[in-house]
Simulated scan of single mutants.
Amino acid sequence: MEDEDILDTLDSLDAPDTPDGPQPRPQSLMLTFFGNHVLEAGNLCVYSGSIIDALGRVGVGEQAVRSTLTRMVNRGLLQRQREGRRMYFGLTPQATRVLEDGRTRIWKQGAVNDDWDGTWTLLGFSLPDSWKRQRHDLRSRLTWSGFGALYSGLWIAPGNVDVSTTVSELGLTAHVKIFHAQADVATDIELMIRDTWDLESIAARYVTFDKRWTAHLGTASGDDPIATRLRLVSEWLWTIRTDPRLPARHLPPAWPARTAQDTFRRVAEQTAAPAGQMARDLLETARLR
């Protein structure tokens, strides 16, 4: 899988915003499906009809599912396996890596950074004007890793962030310099954060998520648990995608990430067992060879 395919995979996790909230794209929902029901199971593949059924529960049509499966196979994200007359799909190592990164962001790191140790990672780069694609790739990957543009060629992220592998994968090691440092007392960190990141946009995503899913908590009894969990995880990843986990003590009072995360975890806990049981009952699977 080419580096740009990994980048496009991360980009595809974004979703167009509508008055009703984010509308995840089919590939985002497909990745969420495999992350929910295949990643932790190991060498497992799923019958295409089961995937069509699962994504149909969130409004993705059969043709869109089939074309997304084909596109993801062609890009090295999924692998096909024939069992008799049926086609099954499983994760490739590259897709597993992408999903494990997402799982860390969603379930392990959390949205609130209460443990910041005062360090920053600084990355400076200088690329030829003709390298537009390389510049786009680097900036997109840096954004995913929590960086913001302090200046045009100098990016910064809270904490000790290891981006050496990312830089190497993009073939830009010779053009990038990485430092780990602390801010001088003369630096107004809160002003720097406001100048570097769009806090209003980040906060708005959390507020929207919290409003939608808090309302959902009181009306969830008749929901389809697979569909609910697909929407929940896809929307949460969309919500946190542009949040670099800035140090909580330097953010505005009542930063909405905390309440949104609490809501996410409540709904996740509420849907985990029912979704898992429904998946075991409905999904036709086979061992991936």
Rank of each mutant, 00 (worst) to 15 (best):
I6C: 15
L10P: 08
D11S: 14
D20S: 10
G21K: 01
L29F: 01
M30S: 00
M30P: 02
T32E: 03
V38E: 00
L39P: 05
G49E: 05
G49Q: 03
G49A: 08
S50D: 05
L55W: 00
G61R: 03
R71K: 07
L77H: 02
R82L: 13
E83G: 12
G84C: 08
G84F: 05
R86W: 15
Y88E: 06
T92L: 02
A95W: 00
V98I: 10
D101Q: 10
G102I: 06
R105P: 04
G110C: 06
T119G: 14
T121A: 13
R133I: 12
R135W: 03
H136Q: 11
S140D: 11
S140T: 14
L142Y: 02
S145E: 13
D162S: 12
T165M: 14
V167N: 09
T173S: 15
I178G: 08
A181L: 15
D188A: 08
E190K: 02
R194A: 11
T196H: 08
W197A: 04
W197V: 07
L199H: 02
E200D: 15
Y206F: 15
D210H: 07
T214R: 06
T214M: 07
A215R: 11
H216Y: 14
A220C: 13
D223Q: 11
D224L: 09
P225A: 07
I226S: 00
A227G: 09
R229A: 01
S234R: 01
W238I: 07
D243L: 11
R245K: 06
P252M: 01
W255L: 02
P256M: 00
D262A: 15
F264V: 03
A268D: 12
Q277Y: 14
Q277K: 14
M278P: 11
D281F: 06
L282I: 08
